[in-house]
């Protein structure tokens, strides 16, 4: 073996690499071990899902849970799934996208302003943005309900978007202000010298350069909105996916396998989305903290 001839630093380096890969395996276990049981159950019949001891892989795998959801049939546990999982996934997607758009428009301009200008109360508003997240949803949901009802926005995706702004906008501003802080001011100034108005400078110069930051903030906001349960529960009739998933936890039926399959389907779109934009997310957030 060649190892006899290896020097100590090389050995050391190999040991470190081995350790790192071991850590990578541990990381994968942390993520996948709980999730594996969910995926596993989604291919099981109810009887197998409650087997003692649990089965590591389905012994009699079934696609029944998925076909019920995708074709709107009755699931193996008896749940009438209909097409509501698919409809709700669509609504969740729409709510997520609209929330993102609203956030980028509102948060983008505000973050730019807080990064570039010092106006009366600018510090205060930056602080209060973060502490806006301190208000517990349980306490203020009644106020939202009344307001949305007056606006005719109960059980509406637009109503949810308005409410979701309350907890996503602070994050957007936080991320984007950091991002703008990292962009050299000379960019704005050069644009202004060229005769552009300040608004034009923002739109034509800053916006394209800041795209990674926008995409990063968009992904954060989309995921926050995707998993939100309590507002969707109280302000809609199972409009988005989290309350639909909660609906499978019934009293009179055992719907765990249906719930598992629906959850797997619900996790796929954001993961795909994040994969597509992964480069941008990391780069975008990265820029944000650059000094």
């Amino acid at each position: 073996m060649a190892s006899r001839t290896l020097s100590r630093p090389v050995l050391r380096k190999r040991a470190v690499t081995a350790l790192l890969y071991a850590a990578l395996v541990l990381f994968a276990v942390w993520v996948l071990f709980p999730f594996w049981f969910l995926v596993n159950s989604s291919f099981m019949t109810p009887a197998e899902a409650v087997a003692v001891p649990p089965h590591w892989i389905p012994e009699e795998p079934t696609l029944g849970n998925y076909s019920a959801i995708l074709a709107g049939q009755v699931a193996p546990g008896g749940a009438q799934v209909g097409l509501r999982v698919l409809t709700a996934l669509g609504e969740s997607f729409a709510v997520g996208i609209l929330t993102v758009v609203a956030n980028l428009a509102l948060g983008g301009t505000a973050a730019y302003s807080m990064s570039r200008f010092r106006f009366r109360g600018s510090r205060l508003s930056y602080f209060s943005v973060l502490f806006a997240r301190l208000v517990p949803p349980i306490a203020i949901v009644a106020a939202f309900f009344v307001a949305l009802r007056d606006l005719g926005l109960i059980n509406s995706r637009y109503g949810l978007v308005v409410v979701y702004i309350s907890f996503t906008l602070p994050i957007t501003i936080l991320v984007l202000k950091n991002y703008f802080d990292g962009l050299p001011r000379e960019l704005d100034e050069a644009a202004l010298v060229d005769g552009a108005s300040r608004l034009q400078a923002l739109w034509y110069v800053i916006r394209p350069i800041a795209r990674p930051g926008f995409i990063a903030a968009a992904c954060l906001v989309f995921l926050e909105s995707w998993g939100e349960f309590f507002y969707a529960l109280t302000l809609t009739n199972q409009l988005t996916i989290p309350p639909v998933l909660a609906g499978f936890r019934g009293f009179f039926q055992f719907n765990w396998t249906t719930l598992a399959a629906a959850t797997v389907l619900a996790v796929v779109p954001p993961v795909l989305l994040a994969l597509v934009f992964q480069r941008y997310v990391v780069r975008g957030l990265a820029q944000g903290v650059a000094k």
């Binding site: 009644a142 309900f145 109280t234 302000l235 909660a246």
Partner: peptide, 21 residues
């Protein structure tokens, strides 16, 4: 028909009535 999940139904139905719905 309007359907709500059982998990959370008490909170959801009370919120509706408190909000005048």
């Amino acid at each position: 028909l309007e359907v709500l999940p059982v998990t959370g139904y008490p909170a959801a139905i009370q919120t509706r009535f408190r909000g005048g719905d």
